[in-house]
Every structure is written in structure tokens, then in C-alpha cells.
Write a protein that binds this DNA or RNA. Structure first.
Lengths: 331, 331
DNA sequence: TTGAAAGCGGTACCAG
DNA sequence: CTGGTACCGCTTTCAA
């Protein structure tokens, strides 16, 4: 049963005596084809091992049933887990997913967008780099349906699904402040990233509400790619900064910090009070415990639903902001 | 600068006065087009914001410059990291990557293969479920270039890149045996999976070489999807099994086991001797340390190179097995 | 060096 | 209910 050449509609048409057209419609179960015909065609299609050429289909119909997901780095479990959720939801609606990594770099982000457009994806889910807003404007000009995830632009109206990061930052810092800490090291992401700015704002708010002054030297901004946490903490430890607790930009950064601190304490497994974000331990079990901020909602699913809705509605769609509520979780 | 409709070659042709054909070849920098013409065409293409329709291109040329990666679960950092490496290598050669998750389920694996075929991917990198060999035979019949990663079939000749898992198992068990442990719990993957079978073989070999008897009740086979480690250890702890050390199927399972054991000891962070596989800490820092088996080679890169070679060579390609040497790494 | 024409494999649209 | 035909946008081949 060698299947060297691709089986096409024509092969089925030849074998059954119907036209390509009829075969095409029969296989799509259009109701204007008689039950008998449909069955015959389906059967021979099965026998021949027919698999539709989606490139051809896409070309004519303009629909690829494919969405692109563009994120910083898929090997980051936060994105990995998000992506997995997206794939699951997308699959349920018959969509396939292409992935692009930006490494938090605008140029690669642009390449990804171009490539996705070139492949005629039906829509894009993007966690934007946010160094500038060029790429977003580009997406808008191309009029490809897209949804931002995890980050948003204050000045541009787009669909977006993101966490309430001001509240997140406030919860994190507040938790530690309420334990009596007043020197809380804050290691956060760049301020051009909305979550970076918002979480820091939350950190400040928490202090203000408790009338505790924020010490600016406790605030450290860093890259959010892998290894960044290590670098910062390494530097900080050279400064003799009197911090007694830490708010880390993500659980991953928190782990990096604990790794680094481990080198400076006798017992590697006694760690200082630290709070992270993303609650990665809910997805990947890990035997080191600290509180983490997260939402109860399924961001991935919400993204996909929103995107599909947007794809359906087309131009008439009005931008929707879905802000996910967050809470502090003790695993 | 509204770019509503897609810009096509025709638009450029109309604007420059050349034919579609000439435009196409000019944009591909074929040398049978005069420098002048090329420049004019490139310039107007830029002005109009032309982006090639790869669906159309693929249809005619048969090449999509896309590969599919099919793995168990991308949210597993092992696969996430592998995938990332694949994407990096593929990108360098101008390839895009589609991803499919099988959840270690043959049926989904088949769907993934069909979908990839339908999208006319140029090649596939697959970590096979191995419940049976139907899907591999399917791939061979479809004559899509593919490379297996992490697992191989003893009875079927295919291209494959995988770790020396017998040695891996031997190193892991040997390390613990040499520390004086004689009751080493082995928590491994299903035996139909090559790495599951091979690592267990290695565990046995290590005992044999040291003339230490293997106690069969120390051998536990489990699923390898998330949470499986927890289940097994939970059950084992009800049995009062006198193990003093553990060989875990992967670092992820090791972490799960440490989580579970944490519930039964006073100090959560004092853990029993355990050895894992994959050395996930090399990619993602975690402040819990134990030895892990891994290779020095870049599996992802090797996979991509092999696949691209196979794509180029076509039918003439002879299957290649790349067995990666492994070692025990103390982070 | 450039142009004309024939497809790639489907789908949309209209006719019968 | 089924067939005919144009056509999606690009690449290939051959001719000029």
C-alpha cells in the first residue's frame, strides 16, 4: 500500500465517477449531496488514504485554521504552560498552532509577525515585547485579528487578556509588609512592559497604604529572560543591602534568587521570605514553597475564545479588555 | 497607509509595468534579472508593504519551509527546552515550526501526523508515543521526512536521535549503589517506551556488575505525564517499603517525589538521595540539588540538522541513528 | 533579460 | 442533487 504521490480530489473523482466538485462537497458533508453519494465518496476517500491539502484549501478559502502564538521564550514554563492551554483550546475548534519566540526582542517579534502573516494565519496571540508600539500598529494595519496576552498598551486600544498587575504587586508587597518586613527587595521587569510598571506601582501602593516609606535602593529593574535574576542578586549581594524579604518578578526569578542566596547561606534550603508571580508550582510540582500571585481564571482559554470571536466578527469587532483578577496563593 | 487587501505580485507588476513573473523572480534575486529592474521592483515591493503568500508559494513549489514537532506535552520543561532548541536551529535555516502535543496518546499522535501532512510540512520531528508502531509505519508510507527524538524502535529502521539510556540507567543506579545503598527505589516509565525499557535495563546492569541482587518490589513503572510520580510515591508510602534512595524517570518526577516525601518528613527540605534524568536545572534554575543524567550534546540541533539533511537528500537518504553519550551531572 | 501560459489542489458560484 | 468553470497567488517552463 504505497502512498507515494499525494491523493487528491481528482483521484477520488476518477475512481467514483463524480466530479472533483462533488467530491469536495461530499467530503465536507454539505447537505446538497445525496446520502448515498456521500457515503461512496467518503469510503473511497478512506480507501485511498485521502488527506486534504490545506495549503490549497487555504488559498482559495482564505482560511488556514491556524493561529500563531508569539511569546518571549517557550522554554520558560510560564509560557510553556500558557501555550499548552492555548493549543488545547484551539484544537477543540479545529485550529492548529504555530509558535514563535521573540526572546523579548522587537526585531524578532516583527519577523514573527511577518512570517505569520505570510502563512496567512487566521489570528495571532501575542505577548508583546513593548520596546515600542510599532509592531502593534503594524498588526493593526495588516488587519490580522490579534489578541495580546499578559501585557497591554495604555495608549492603544486592542483586545487583550492580562492580569491585574497593580493588585498583584500590592498583594505581594502587602503580604510581606504585614509580616513586619520594611526592607523588601523588589526585583521587577522593565517599566516599558506593562506588567513591570504595574507591579511596581502595586509595590508602592502597598507601602503607601501602610504609611511605610519606599526605599528606592530596594527597587531593582532587570531583564526578564532566563538568568537575569541571578545577575541582579549577585550584584546586590556585593552591596550589603539590608533587605529581609523579596518580591520577585516571577516564580522563575524567585527560584534563581534562591539559588543565588543558597550560595551565601549554610543551609541551602532555608530561604528568606519571598513572593513570586505566576504560581508556576500549580503546573509543575516543585518542592520549594513560597506564596505566588495568580488568577483563578484560565487565561489561555479566554485568549483563544476572544480571538476566535474576533475572527468570526471581523471588522465589526470592538476591542475587549479582559483583566483577570488575582490572588495570593499559598501552595 | 491602510493595507486592507493583501498586496500581491500583481500589484507590484501593475505599478512597475513588469509582469508578475518578472516581479517574482526579481524578488527572489534571480540573476537573470537586470540590476535596475530588481532594484525598482524591490523598492516598490517595500513601498506597498508586500509580504509573500506562502500558502500560494507552497502550493506551487511543494515546499512550505515548515517543520512539525510532535511531543508529549510542551508544558513539560524538558520538551519546552528541546522545542526551543529546535526552533532556534530551524529558524537559522529559514524554517518555521508548528507544534503538536500528543499527551502520550496514540490517537492524538495520529491526528497530529495527519494535520502536519495536510499542511504539507517539509518534515517532522517526533517523540513517539510507542504504544504501537502504526503511526511510524504511517509516516513511512506517507514518505514524509521525519526524525525520532528521545525514543527509537528496535524493530524499525528510522532516523533517530536519542540518549544512551542503558548507560543512563546504569550511571544513575551505580552512583547510588556506590554510596552504599542497596534498596534503591526505581520509578520508571512504561516499558513500551524505549527510554523506559533501557533505563530499567541499566538499573539492572548496575546491580549485576556489583553483584547486588535487584529486588523486584523496588521497581515501579508509571505513566510519564505530569502528576504520575506523585501517585506512585503516594501508594508506595502506604507499603512501608524500606528504600533508602531513588532513581526517578526524570527530574520532573524526582521533584514530584520530593514534594510527596516532604509531606512525610519534618523538614521539607532535607531530601533522600535521588537521581534524575534530563538535567533540567541546566535550563531552569531550581534551588534543589541532586545528580541528573544528561548528554553534553545539543540534541535539538542534531535533530534539525539531520532532518534538513534528510529533506534535501530525499529518497536516497539512509536512516541514521545518533546515540548521544550521557554522563552524571552534579549541578 | 523579460513575457506568456500552464498549472499546483482546492473552493465558490452559477447553471442545469 | 450534480456538473462546469473561474480563480486564489505564486512558480515553473518555454518562448521570444
Amino acid at each position: 500500500m504505497a502512498v507515494k504521490k499525494r491523493v487528491t480530489l481528482k483521484d477520488i473523482a476518477d475512481k467514483t465517477g463524480y466530479t472533483i466538485n462533488t467530491v469536495s462537497r461530499a467530503l465536507k458533508d454539505k447537505k446538497d449531496i445525496s446520502r448515498e453519494t456521500r457515503e461512496v465518496i467518503h469510503k473511497t476517500a478512506g480507501q485511498l488514504g485521502y488527506i486534504m491539502d490545506s495549503a490549497a484549501s487555504a488559498m482559495r478559502s482564505g482560511k488556514t485554521k491556524t493561529i500563531a502564538v508569539i511569546v518571549g521564550d517557550i522554554s520558560n514554563p510560564f509560557f510553556g504552560s500558557l501555550f499548552r492551554g492555548i493549543e488545547l483550546s484551539a484544537r477543540k475548534s479545529g485550529f492548529t498552532v504555530i509558535i514563535y519566540n521573540t526572546d523579548e526582542n522587537s526585531e524578532w517579534e516583527q519577523n514573527a509577525i511577518f512570517s505569520a502573516y505570510s502563512k496567512r494565519v487566521d489570528g495571532i496571540i501575542l505577548c508583546p515585547v513593548q520596546e515600542n508600539s510599532e509592531n502593534i500598529k503594524l498588526l493593526q494595519r495588516m488587519s490580522v485579528p490579534f489578541v495580546l496576552v499578559g501585557r497591554y498598551f495604555k495608549k492603544i486600544k486592542t483586545d487583550a487578556v492580562f492580569w491585574n498587575d497593580v493588585k498583584a504587586g500590592e498583594l505581594a508587597a502587602g503580604y510581606l509588609l504585614d509580616q513586619g518586613h520594611v526592607n523588601i527587595l523588589y526585583i521587577g521587569g522593565p517599566l516599558h512592559i506593562s506588567s513591570g510598571a504595574d507591579r511596581l506601582q502595586g509595590y508602592r501602593n502597598a507601602h503607601k497604604k501602610r504609611e511605610i516609606p519606599v526605599k528606592e535602593e530596594m527597587i531593582r529593574i532587570t531583564r526578564i529572560t532566563a538568568g537575569a535574576g541571578l545577575e541582579v542578586i549577585d550584584q546586590i549581594l556585593g552591596e550589603d543591602l539590608p533587605f529581609t524579604a523579596v518580591v520577585a518578578f516571577s516564580d522563575l526569578v524567585a527560584y534563581e534568587i534562591l539559588c543565588a542566596l543558597g550560595n551565601y547561606t549554610k543551609d541551602k534550603y532555608t530561604h528568606i521570605p519571598i513572593v513570586g508571580f505566576d504560581n508556576i508550582r500549580e503546573k509543575i510540582m516543585f518542592p520549594v514553597y513560597f506564596p505566588s500571585i495568580d488568577s483563578r481564571e484560565n487565561a489561555a482559554k479566554i485568549c483563544v475564545e476572544l480571538l476566535l470571536k474576533k475572527i468570526q466578527e471581523g471588522e465589526s469587532h470592538k476591542p475587549v479588555l479582559r483583566i483577570l483578577d488575582v490572588e495570593l496563593k499559598h501552595t
